[in-house]
Design a protein around this nucleic acid. Sequence first.
DNA 1: GCTAACATCTGTAGCGGCTACAGGTTCAAG
DNA 2: CTTGAACCTGTAGCCGCTACAGATGTTAGC
Lengths: 135, 135
Amino acid sequence: MTTGTITIGRLSARTGVNIETIRYYERIGLVPAPMRSAGGHRLYDEDASTRLSFVKRARELGFSLPEIRSLIGLEETAPTCADVYALATSHIQSIRKRINDLQALEQRLATLAANCSRSENTECPIIDALGGAYE
Amino acid sequence: MTTGTITIGRLSARTGVNIETIRYYERIGLVPAPMRSAGGHRLYDEDASTRLSFVKRARELGFSLPEIRSLIGLEETAPTCADVYALATSHIQSIRKRINDLQALEQRLATLAANCSRSENTECPIIDALGGAYE
DNA sequence: GCTAACATCTGTAGCGGCTACAGGTTCAAG
DNA sequence: CTTGAACCTGTAGCCGCTACAGATGTTAGC
């Protein structure tokens, strides 16, 4: 084995990214294909670990794989700071929208549940609200 | 055509559920297969419209299709009010969790973006935070 | 009645982002 | 040298639709 390289299992343990997911990222070209051992096993260097961690953190921040691809500079040109900022702010917008939607949803559900008798029969205000009310 | 029945297109327009989605719901058994015209076109009655609206509203409240299936009483037994209440409250929990997660995310992204120079070069604090910081 | 335009039909494949096999090979420890 | 763990490839499945392709049905106007 080449010095300083690790197997996919170790890389997975180190980065917290599932083995299958690492291979998936390779397949779609999000991370480069690593060198191989004589027998065909993947061998990763430090760079690979860095790049994979980057992807993972970006995922945790809610970026999609195509977005990460451009963040990582895999497109023709590496993104400028202004590009990244634009992507980040548009992301923030959509996160805020989702929060709003979810809060409205929570309100509606909570209201319905509050009216609920929790009895053992099949008469239920939640079902009523879904079914008969306004159709 | 039988009196009082409508085509899938009209049903779609009336309920706001996509035609393809209606057929999908039928295929997975979420709504019953309707009668057919001589030529094989689907013909829906009022009941179908009611049931489809039910499904749509439940989807809007964030219930999954399997959950809706049990809400609708397609399982062996129709759910009791207590069952529905349990499902609703567990839903509320998971919605609250998602709201929390998204708010934390928004915070992190906003903080990163605030430090951003928005310049036209490739040096960027967001990228730095993703890439180098702690690996 | 005939034609044109539109609606609907079936079946299948694709989206995102993985995850889970099956059935085989390689590696490392003892 | 053997064992057992780790790894390999390839494919199919998850959810909830959506988007075709290519065929057939329906309906309005002439």
